[in-house]
Amino acid sequence: MLHATPSDVRGMKAPRLFRRILGSVPNPGTGPKRTAIRPPAVWGQAEPVWKTLWSWIRGTQEPIQHRKLTLDDARRDFAAALSDLSAEDACDLRRRGQSARSLRELWHLRADLYSMIARYRSQAEADRRLQSVNRHFPASTTPTAKSTTSRPEHFDA
């Protein structure tokens, strides 16, 4: 809260007054956090090299099978999110989700999925359904408010 008396405000130059006002604004990085869903790694970056070599030496295909099962699960959840929508554009999006060749490709279809569900149902329903799809992708916690403008560091005193 500002604790400036009227005589203090009259004696301040404009930049000093703005600095005092802006100084009382809380730091945007300290606000509540939200979960950001990041795209999956590009093929070959998800597995460390030593694990890939070890699988190759042992003659197993575990990482490849695991990636295929994860993609199948993600496709299934994607289709389930659209299951009750029968519009032509919803059917097209369902086909695009089923033919996605990678998790990264499916990740890029999430925006279309969200807008489709929000348009035909509601935003709350789109949020709820997208959670089942988002569980297949890496997540990180980030601050909700980000400063898009930078304050100049040089003010007249």
Rank of each mutant, 00 (worst) to 15 (best):
W50Q: 10
K51P: 03
W54R: 13
W54H: 09
W54Y: 10
S55V: 08
W56L: 15
W56V: 08
I57Y: 10
R58H: 10
G59K: 00
T60L: 12
E62N: 12
I64R: 11
H66T: 15
K68D: 15
L71R: 08
D73A: 15
D73F: 11
A74S: 01
R75K: 13
R76V: 04
R76E: 13
A80W: 01
A81L: 03
L82Q: 08
L82E: 04
S83R: 10
S83C: 07
S83P: 03
S83Y: 06
D84K: 06
L85H: 01
L85M: 02
S86F: 14
S86L: 14
S86T: 15
S86W: 14
A87K: 10
A90L: 09
A90M: 08
C91N: 14
D92M: 09
L93N: 03
R94W: 01
R95T: 07
Q98G: 13
S99P: 09
A100P: 10
R101Q: 08
R101F: 05
S102V: 05
R104W: 08
R104Y: 09
L106W: 00
W107P: 04
H108N: 09
H108S: 06
A111R: 06
D112H: 09
Y114Q: 02
Y114N: 00
Y114I: 00
I117T: 02
I117V: 01
A118V: 02
R119I: 03
Y120F: 06
R121P: 07
R121W: 05
S122A: 05
A124C: 05
A124M: 09
A124H: 06
D127F: 04
R128C: 04
R129L: 08
L130G: 02
S132F: 05
S132D: 14
S132I: 08
S132Y: 11
V133N: 03
N134C: 12
